[in-house]
Design a protein around this nucleic acid. Structure first.
Lengths: 306, 306
DNA sequence: CATCTCAATACTTTTAAGGTATTAAATAAT
DNA sequence: ATTATTTAATACCTTAAAAGTATTGAGATG
């Protein structure tokens, strides 16, 4: 079977006239006659009854015409979809986020992407740093969002945003009425820290920052994630350093205070990671969108878009 | 787009190796490489990532593979269905029957046909002789069943069966207890006759038969069809000649009596008519089946089949 | 009866698919 | 490091098949 024959058949069926059909197809009449003959021979079926004034479809021909319509529309769909997939505009994208990543810039960025690529199916997976890298290598995910990533040979990372740190303290604490808290005062709070897994992590960074400022922090408790940490602050366990994005969760008994007199690098990064060798157009589209998102965000014109 | 390319693509996708795929396709490797390159070029999409140990589908390639499967299965279906239609094993057949044709051989024959050609959709239309011929010429039907047909230039007819005539009389009539009624006695009954339309018809034939036997029948009433006629017999209007097949309808107050001492041709035909120039395989199949049906019926082995 | 209109046939040209030999790149083995 | 080895890609030639030109044949039309 041969699409050329079907295409020719379709035109002859429409024109009911080999000569006219040949003109429509921009070929001469004899080869068209032959193609139709060959098609009939191949199928073992008479498709046209030849009248002195043209050609008429037989019942079998009428049926084939319908089928041919379907075949061509399916082929058209297939090429379109394949082309879209080739441009990263169609497909499935598995993305990893971490616990408190559901707040802040990640959902905004994902929404932004979804708007541009509505036919890309985004599947979110919650996993920690180590898991993300494993999943990337096993190609179970294409992108992971995380913080404080150590460079790796086979994995690239791309900055999404930097976030200032805030100190979550109890409303009952004497400093709860202050506008901001000087960095050095952290020494005086029993600190709740997270996460327990994944090195280097937020705890390591905090300890280093404090030592830079000339003191050792009083780590009273380690927990799995920011949400748990803030919950403990409400119960009076102590204070907890959180990235700005996490302050959207308001819990009675907790206030978030900006830090003043901070050393350098009192910000944490939010980055996304992906395989070095991933050439997929989906990833390319995702990273392009991410970069554009960052630019727009820097220009503070984000609000109009989301 | 070209089915050859898609076929080749499918094999390469399965084998993940151009060389092996070429062997499967019984061609050499370079033309296969070219065909794949051309396909990629045509779509503007990279379908394979070339590794040193073979070829791997990209996401777009995976999608195309699925689509190609559907395309081929659709084409396969299309050819099969077209071939079936070409052999008269698939399609729609419009058949005309007359009023009392729902009894007797016609439904048996149709059932027999339906068993052999289960994928042929039979559509029945009830119409009289004149209508049938008109509908045939306008190609609204392919076959009509009727009786006593005059030959026509553009329409063939084929005998289905001959049926003996019986006389429907009232149970109150003195002859109701006889085993059979001599043909000449018909003279003594007021006759209810049908149909009113369509020449030559059953009335013409009956009158001729009676005149052959040396008398003129006493036609007391003309009605549209056999059922109405028999109903009038029950009410005491008189007697009514009916073909044997119509005697399946039993009405209180009516008995069917065979005729004795009949002249020649006291049988009526049941025939089917079709266009002379109808070359459709469906009609051919129908007529072939009809002939076979007649043979089986003649051998009285019909009961085992229906 | 000539003429016209179709589709079909005979034969030639052109296109494109297939084949052989070779190259290029990357890995694996010595 | 160097040499096989394996893979796809390229260059060039051959073959097959599709398209073109000219003509024929069959049926309708004036």
């Amino acid at each position: 079977m041969d699409l050329r024959k079907l295409r020719y058949f379709k035109v002859v069926a429409d024109e009911k006239h080999i000569g006219r059909a040949a003109k429509v197809l921009h070929i001469s009449q004899p080869p068209l006659t032959r193609q139709i003959q060959q098609l009939e021979e191949e199928l073992g079926v008479t498709l046209f009854s030849r009248n002195p004034k043209g050609m008429e479809l037989t019942d079998a021909g009428v049926l084939l015409r319908e089928e041919v319509r379907n075949i061509f529309s399916l082929i058209e769909q297939a090429t379109e979809r394949t082309q879209k997939a080739g441009q990263g505009r169609l497909g499935r994208m598995d993305i990893a986020i971490f616990g408190s990543g559901i707040m802040g810039d990640i959902p905004k960025m994902l929404l932004f992407f979804k708007e541009r690529y509505p036919e890309v199916n985004i599947v979110l997976h919650t996993m920690g740093k180590g898991e993300q890298i494993k999943a990337l290598r096993q190609k179970r995910i294409s992108v992971g969002f995380n913080r404080l990533l150590a460079p790796l040979a086979d994995i690239n990372s791309e900055l999404v945003s930097m976030e200032k740190l805030k100190l979550a303290i109890s409303t009952k604490h004497p400093m709860a009425s202050e506008d901001s808290i000087p960095f050095k005062k952290i020494k005086e709070f029993p600190l709740i820290m997270y996460p327990t897994a994944g090195r280097p992590n937020f705890i390591d960074k905090t300890v280093r920052l404090c030592q830079l400022a000339g003191f050792t922090p009083d780590i009273s408790q380690e927990v799995g994630d920011a949400v748990t940490g803030v919950a403990l602050v409400a119960s009076g366990f102590g204070a907890c350093l959180v990235p700005e994005s996490a302050t959207v969760l308001s819990i009675p008994g907790v206030v978030y205070k900006p830090l003043s007199e901070t050393p350098e690098e009192t910000e944490v990064d939010l980055s996304c990671i992906y395989r070095n060798d991933d050439e997929s157009p989906l990833l390319k589209a995702f990273l392009d969108t991410l970069r554009e998102f960052r630019t727009i965000k820097d220009n503070r014109s984000l609000d109009e878009l989301c």
